[in-house]
Simulated assay, not measured.
Amino acid sequence: MVTDTGGIDDKSFNASAWAGLQAAKESQSNVEPKYVASTSEADYEPNLRQFVTQKCNFILSVGGLMGDATKKVATENTSQQFGIVDASIPDATNVFPMQFATEQAAFLAGYLAAGYSKTGKVATYGGLKIPPVTVFMDGFADGVAHFNKVKGKDVKVLGWDKAKQNGTFAENFGDQNKGKSITNTFVAQGADVIMPVAGGTGLGTADVAKASNGKVSVIWVDQDGCKSAEQYCEVFLTTVVKNITDAVKGAVVDGASGKTLAATPGYLGTLENNGVSIAPFNQFESKVDAGLKAEIDKLKADIIAGTVKVESANAPK
């Protein structure tokens, strides 16, 4: 596995993918996981090539930013199997894509944020302006809009304008100070529920929330924050979960047992197949109104049934 620049311990998507490799090892004795961390985008290609040289059977790229490097290396090494999280490379038949309809789960989180907010202002920001990030922000904004429509309210979203595809970005996935700075600005503008889609940068948001004495809460992404960043569990209202771990485990186990991993259709995680979800409320269980919980359960069922449409130009194609 080659990590994105967030590193193996980002409490987010790199960590989720590595957990998938570890889980595959536990269930399939011929799996030997190893990883190399990328410190910059320039590392992607040489890191992938070192695993080609080592004749690894399955080489996993983590993150949409690795698409170009993966395509280049995979098309030059067609006898080896590659996989990629958060991207699809149709021209490379030996790359198995694992993508997620994150907008569906983020829609639920936006509705929750709007219903939980005391100030009538919520916020989101991203690490970089790329589709695997902005798809969360689209879903979140639409969930808030749906709440407003159903309830006749006017909860505002700071940090993202879906119609204009414009918003706030940290320009990285590992700078907690930048996360703090962005969050402090949102809080000064009145936001009390904030969803960072920024890997380790988002831990800066959790720091601000922890210091707020309960006034600010956080919606985490990728892995249930109460499991991946336990020290901040008290501020995590929920998490928009991408079940990267199970997707990676499934692909590796299939490959290790001799199945051919097809580039199409690949894997798409949805609310229906539990590939995306919102995590338990954990320490917020007693703080979230029972009526709001019931509305979110109904909304999930309606999205699965197709009676509530969730759409994003940034969703996996």
Rank of each mutant, 00 (worst) to 15 (best):
D4S: 14
G6L: 09
G6R: 02
G6W: 12
N14S: 07
S27Y: 02
E45Y: 02
R49E: 13
T53F: 09
I59K: 03
D68T: 15
E76C: 10
N77H: 08
T78H: 02
S79P: 01
F82W: 13
G83T: 07
G83M: 03
I84D: 00
V85S: 05
P90L: 11
M98V: 03
A106W: 14
F107A: 09
L112G: 01
K118N: 12
G120L: 13
Y125K: 06
K129C: 10
P131L: 04
T134M: 02
A141L: 05
V144M: 03
L158C: 09
W160N: 03
W160T: 02
N172Q: 04
D175H: 10
Q176A: 12
G179M: 06
T183H: 09
N184E: 15
A188I: 02
D192M: 09
A198H: 13
A198R: 03
A206W: 11
A209P: 05
A211W: 11
K215M: 01
W220G: 09
S228K: 05
E230W: 01
E234G: 14
E234K: 12
V235G: 06
I244E: 05
I244R: 11
G250N: 14
A251Q: 01
A256C: 15
G258F: 09
T264H: 15
Y267G: 04
N274D: 14
G275W: 12
G275E: 13
I278C: 03
V288N: 10
L292A: 13
A301W: 02
E311F: 10
E311N: 14
